[in-house]
Nucleic acid binder design. Sequence first.
DNA 1: TTGAAAGCGATACCAA
DNA 2: TTGGTATCGCTTTCAA
Lengths: 353, 353
Amino acid sequence: MNLKELAHKLGISQTTVSRALNGYPEVSEATRRKVREAAEVHNYRPSLRAKSLATGRSMAIAHVVPVSSKHEMVNPIFADFIAGAGEEYARAGYELLLSVVADSDHDRMYRDLVTRKAVDGLVVQAPTLTDNRIPLLADLGIPFVVHGRSSGVVSAYNWLDVNNRRAFERATGLLLDLGHRRIALLNGLATLDFAHRRSDGYKRALLERSITIDPELIAHDEMTENYGYEVARRMLAQPNPPTAFLVSSIIPAIGVRRAITDAGLEFGREVSIVIHDDDLSYFRNAGDVPLFTAVRSSVREAGQRAAAMLLEIIRRREEGIADEAPMQILMEAELTIGQSTGPRALSRARAQN
Amino acid sequence: MNLKELAHKLGISQTTVSRALNGYPEVSEATRRKVREAAEVHNYRPSLRAKSLATGRSMAIAHVVPVSSKHEMVNPIFADFIAGAGEEYARAGYELLLSVVADSDHDRMYRDLVTRKAVDGLVVQAPTLTDNRIPLLADLGIPFVVHGRSSGVVSAYNWLDVNNRRAFERATGLLLDLGHRRIALLNGLATLDFAHRRSDGYKRALLERSITIDPELIAHDEMTENYGYEVARRMLAQPNPPTAFLVSSIIPAIGVRRAITDAGLEFGREVSIVIHDDDLSYFRNAGDVPLFTAVRSSVREAGQRAAAMLLEIIRRREEGIADEAPMQILMEAELTIGQSTGPRALSRARAQN
DNA sequence: TTGAAAGCGATACCAA
DNA sequence: TTGGTATCGCTTTCAA
């Protein structure tokens, strides 16, 4: 059932039917009701493609998710981020286009999506230190929001980020307060901007207390379980092992925990862990942080807010509102003290000194 | 730059330009080369929406991913499945439309996608025991592939599944061979078809050796880390605790491991774990199964193959090839013996008897 | 308040 | 081998 047929069936013009269904004010209430009922009965839904062609809007947003060229892995935090964003899009009647491509193909992907007019807006995931996708998209003139920031990009752009520097500075400070002096940092890939900010926060906290930074205690890689395991195992075998681990995601933290147990050490007593917890749904616990002390922020909420921001930007552009300052949201992470850094860890750490 | 402009610039008709670019044979090589070059220079890409409207194909596939209404969680295995499928779509020039909706809204979502002509095909994820989406889609007449099966649906349909029954029968058999007699099963949500098949395999193996099935040792729920922890803790506190856990996913298995350690038991010695491992990329290890004995199958490969199947079905329909028998692929899982069920567990289990 | 008709940007049929 | 033109299903301008 298409518009033409529906109009014919009702004995009125396509124009009126279209107007009635799209809520134009000039249609009489009687007509509108008739049209709505008929549309309902015949299960009429306007064809997306015809609609896009006519309006120039495609009512779709693309998320381009990087697959690591190294391990062909997809970071699971994207799942929750996208779920959050998807909710927002659905509410506003937008579709979500997902492209999973290798880092090296991102530029071409973005170019294609824009020139083929496939989407009205884009979300950039996992920005690197100097991410060339940002100037590219600005150049292409399509609305976009970056999840995270890119320190090397000087021009202004729309972003939503967690305050990673502050979060890691506070977490490190907490461990220092507990008496820890050898604190390991298991970070994400060094090319990613968030990893850089986290390192920065960690280092600041140490420097503030005049503690030397030991490069042997800092690791960067893809955040797999096995990465956490291998690195922690190696570090714990050193002559002067760490008494605490600050880990960038819950997944490698699980590997760290495994390494601690394997080394015959008591988790939470002899060695503590603080993680950055993206509050991944399948690891989520009812209101508690059972495993570790956590710097917690919700990726799902981040997804929602990023999507809302993008839709707002698109709306403004359509209504011809002049581009004001770019939209930027900095979310603060929440620091939660869990059992593993509690009194036992504290006393142990004190005993060390 | 659109077709009209490009044609004008070249001084030839839109028809010829279109034909040249789409590889029609009747275009002279000279013309084709000229057109291709001009398209390259002006960075011309046909508008997706215009193309869809004209051809009737939207060159897009939808995956509708359920969010549990209970915990608002998105199963992380979808990430890898979709990554695999996405690769296949990209290769064939298809877009991937992702909808994340509550179970209750699936019907409407599918109806919408079809009647709005948003996609050429669909993938059904996480089928329940009697999944009404299957007859619905068959009725709507759109190509679709089910990832998994639905036991209650009698009509034939296209699916790709892992042989869950066999996998769990073999895994249970392995544990029985090792001397275990109290084997717990931590399964997925009871409404999902795969959970039913896995229970079935588990029960078969027990019955074959005339071992009574203890309902206290069987649990069904969403596969979170915390679910694994809570259930394992409860079971280990029983008077006659299990000596082995058969777990439906690596995520609750991590919780089980935590419960074992917390109970002061030695993992791999006093209690063993066998998991169904979807080979999730972020938990993947270089060729080894370090944590548990595993029944392993790759969701990523499943995604690839399901996508390839769907594209083939679409191709056939377009070429007017009569619908033959539905396409069905049953993947066998691979049983890998890990350290936790090795000699130590075996001797311990023997000592029990 | 309603309708006729001109796009939107491609494809594809029919002639030449 | 090429071109003119109808067509896909909708929105939107202009006229009534």
